[in-house]
């Protein structure tokens, strides 16, 4: 049901883990629904310098988390805000239809992390 690229990201996820003192943290999903994604970002010169994720969820949830971290690393915050869940699924070569709505939230987690970063920096300035 999953293509090879999804399986590759599922079995060999990129950027898994946690960082110390992240600049922004985003969490989406709910364990009740079976998917939770938490993303941490480090920001330098308005770009995403580093990104880490931890995900509780199915194959699609883990693969999209991994994929999105590859996609946004090095992007400016504005560029990263433009990366959509749909684009993540497309970059993976597609997901089964039933997974598009329930387990395709990784871009949302990145957006939340950027918002978190922006709200913190807005306060400190």
């Amino acid at each position: 049901m999953y293509n090879d690229k999804v399986m590759d990201h599922f079995f060999n996820p990129r950027n898994v883990g946690e960082m110390e003192n992240p600049d922004g943290v985003g969490q989406v999903g709910n364990p009740v629904c079976g998917d939770v994604m938490r993303v941490q970002i480090r920001v330098k010169d308005n770009r995403i310098e580093d990104v880490k994720f931890k995900t509780f969820g199915c194959g699609a949830a883990i693969a999209t988390s991994s994929m999105v971290t590859e996609m946004v690393k090095g992007l400016t915050l504005d560029e990263a805000m433009e990366v959509s869940n749909k684009a993540v699924a497309e970059a993976l070569g597609g997901l089964p239809p039933q997974k598009m709505h329930c387990s395709n939230l990784a871009a949302d987690a990145i957006h939340e992390a950027i918002k978190d970063y922006r709200s913190k920096t807005a306060v400190s300035h």
Partner: peptide
């Protein structure tokens, strides 16, 4: 479990934000 935000999930019962069309 290592990959899964394990420690935070242990007390995630407080997480109220839903998603999807349950």
């Amino acid at each position: 479990r290592e990959m899964s935000a394990f420690s935070s999930l242990r007390d995630s019962r407080a997480c109220e934000e839903g998603h999807g069309n349950v």
